[in-house]
């Protein structure tokens, strides 16, 4: 039970920096998608959303400071979801 209460303390400043980064990415995605880019719009929006999601996972959800096992599990789940999406689309595109 020696794990109880043994934690890395994230400074307040880090949280503020992370929030500012997330807001900048949000503004960027709103700005970029308002331009007519055709099919690229979806790609850009999803890339920026994934970047934001990773930042939330790494900093707010403490993956950076926690045992590596959490990151491995999260990576496995993301890999599973992405695989399902890719396989489903392969089916729809080539049927």
């Amino acid at each position: 039970m020696e794990n109880n209460g043994k934690h890395h303390i994230v400074p307040y400043k880090t949280h503020i920096t992370v929030l500012l980064g997330l807001i900048v990415l949000t503004a960027l995605s709103v700005a970029v998608t308002s331009i007519e880019l055709g099919p690229l719009t979806v790609t850009v929006a999803l890339v920026l959303a994934s970047a934001k999601a990773l930042i939330v996972l790494i900093y707010f959800m403490h993956l950076k400071f926690d045992n590596i096992i959490y990151s491995i599990m999260v990576a496995f789940i993301i890999f599973s979801i992405v695989s399902i999406i890719v396989i489903t689309f392969l089916d729809y595109l080539f049927r």
């Binding site: 949000t26 995605s29 709103v30 998608t33 719009t41 979806v42 929006a45 999803l46 920026l48 959303a49 934001k52 999601a53 939330v56």
Partner: peptide, 10 residues
């Protein structure tokens, strides 16, 4: 974070 671009932005 994913709902927002998919419904509002794209």
């Amino acid at each position: 974070i994913f709902l927002f671009p998919l419904f509002y932005l794209v």
